[in-house]
Simulated assay, not measured.
Amino acid sequence: MYIVAIAWIYVVFMMAITETSVVAGIMTFLLYGVLPVTIIVYVMGSGRRKRKRYAQEMQRREELQKSQEVAASTERPPEA
Protein backbone atom coordinates (compact mmCIF):
# COMPACT_ATOMS: atom_id res chain seq x y z
CA MET A 1 0.00 0.00 0.00
CA TYR A 2 2.71 2.46 0.94
CA ILE A 3 4.90 1.70 -2.08
CA VAL A 4 2.24 3.13 -4.39
CA ALA A 5 1.93 6.25 -2.23
CA ILE A 6 5.70 6.73 -2.22
CA ALA A 7 5.86 6.25 -5.98
CA TRP A 8 3.08 8.76 -6.55
CA ILE A 9 4.78 11.33 -4.31
CA TYR A 10 7.97 10.82 -6.34
CA VAL A 11 6.14 11.36 -9.64
CA VAL A 12 4.44 14.49 -8.37
CA PHE A 13 7.73 15.77 -7.00
CA MET A 14 9.25 15.41 -10.46
CA MET A 15 6.26 17.25 -11.93
CA ALA A 16 6.65 20.03 -9.36
CA ILE A 17 10.34 20.48 -10.18
CA THR A 18 9.50 21.17 -13.84
CA GLU A 19 7.05 23.96 -13.02
CA THR A 20 8.02 27.46 -14.15
CA SER A 21 7.76 29.13 -10.73
CA VAL A 22 8.36 28.09 -7.15
CA VAL A 23 4.77 28.83 -6.15
CA ALA A 24 3.42 26.69 -8.98
CA GLY A 25 5.77 23.88 -7.97
CA ILE A 26 4.67 24.00 -4.35
CA MET A 27 0.99 24.08 -5.31
CA THR A 28 1.47 21.19 -7.72
CA PHE A 29 3.19 19.13 -5.05
CA LEU A 30 0.55 19.87 -2.42
CA LEU A 31 -2.58 19.61 -4.57
CA TYR A 32 -1.55 16.71 -6.83
CA GLY A 33 0.60 14.85 -4.35
CA VAL A 34 0.21 15.36 -0.64
CA LEU A 35 -3.54 15.97 -0.42
CA PRO A 36 -4.69 12.96 -2.50
CA VAL A 37 -2.16 10.61 -0.91
CA THR A 38 -3.22 11.52 2.62
CA ILE A 39 -6.88 10.96 1.74
CA ILE A 40 -6.19 7.59 0.09
CA VAL A 41 -3.95 6.37 2.94
CA TYR A 42 -6.58 7.41 5.49
CA VAL A 43 -9.39 5.62 3.64
CA MET A 44 -7.31 2.49 3.09
CA GLY A 45 -6.45 2.35 6.79
CA SER A 46 -10.08 2.36 7.94
CA GLY A 47 -10.28 -1.45 8.06
CA ARG A 48 -7.23 -1.65 10.29
CA ARG A 49 -8.66 0.97 12.65
CA LYS A 50 -11.97 -0.87 12.78
CA ARG A 51 -10.29 -4.20 13.63
CA LYS A 52 -8.19 -2.53 16.33
CA ARG A 53 -11.26 -0.91 17.89
CA TYR A 54 -13.12 -4.27 17.83
CA ALA A 55 -10.17 -6.04 19.49
CA GLN A 56 -9.99 -3.42 22.22
CA GLU A 57 -13.72 -3.74 22.87
CA MET A 58 -13.45 -7.52 23.13
CA GLN A 59 -10.54 -7.19 25.56
CA ARG A 60 -12.55 -4.79 27.73
CA ARG A 61 -15.48 -7.20 27.76
CA GLU A 62 -13.23 -10.11 28.79
CA GLU A 63 -11.70 -8.05 31.60
CA LEU A 64 -15.15 -7.01 32.82
CA GLN A 65 -16.36 -10.60 32.74
CA LYS A 66 -13.30 -11.79 34.70
CA SER A 67 -13.74 -9.06 37.31
CA GLN A 68 -17.42 -9.98 37.70
CA GLU A 69 -16.49 -13.66 38.15
CA VAL A 70 -13.92 -12.76 40.79
CA ALA A 71 -16.42 -10.53 42.59
CA ALA A 72 -19.06 -13.29 42.52
CA SER A 73 -16.64 -15.89 43.86
CA THR A 74 -15.49 -13.72 46.76
CA GLU A 75 -18.99 -12.88 47.99
CA ARG A 76 -19.88 -14.59 51.26
CA PRO A 77 -23.27 -16.13 51.76
CA PRO A 78 -25.31 -14.37 54.42
CA GLU A 79 -24.90 -15.88 57.89
CA ALA A 80 -28.00 -17.27 59.47
Rank of each mutant, 00 (worst) to 15 (best):
M1Y: 07
M1F: 12
M1Q: 09
Y2F: 07
V4Q: 08
A5Y: 15
A5C: 09
I6A: 10
A7M: 10
I9Y: 06
Y10Q: 01
V11R: 11
V11H: 05
F13P: 00
F13G: 15
M14T: 04
M14R: 10
M15C: 09
M15R: 12
M15P: 01
A16L: 04
A16K: 04
T18F: 10
T18K: 15
T18N: 12
E19V: 03
E19I: 02
T20G: 05
S21E: 08
S21Q: 08
S21K: 02
S21P: 00
V22F: 15
V23K: 13
I26H: 04
I26S: 06
M27L: 15
T28Q: 06
T28D: 07
F29Q: 04
L30W: 01
L31Q: 08
Y32N: 14
G33L: 06
G33S: 07
P36Y: 11
P36E: 12
I39C: 06
I39L: 15
I39P: 00
I39V: 15
I40Q: 11
V41G: 03
V41C: 08
V43P: 00
V43D: 03
G45S: 11
G45K: 02
G45V: 02
S46H: 03
S46M: 15
S46I: 07
S46N: 07
S46F: 09
G47A: 05
R49H: 05
R49A: 09
R49E: 08
R49I: 02
R51G: 03
R51N: 10
R51M: 05
K52L: 12
R53T: 06
R53E: 07
Y54E: 11
Y54S: 09
A55W: 01
A55Q: 11
A55E: 12
Q56Y: 01
Q56S: 04
Q56W: 00
E57Y: 05
M58V: 02
M58L: 12
Q59T: 05
R61V: 02
Q65Y: 03
Q65C: 01
Q65F: 03
Q65M: 03
K66M: 08
K66F: 04
S67K: 14
S67C: 00
Q68F: 05
E69D: 10
E69H: 00
V70I: 13
V70P: 00
V70E: 14
A71P: 00
A71D: 07
A72V: 05
S73K: 15
S73M: 09
E75I: 12
P77T: 12
P77K: 13
P78I: 13
E79I: 11
A80E: 10
A80D: 11
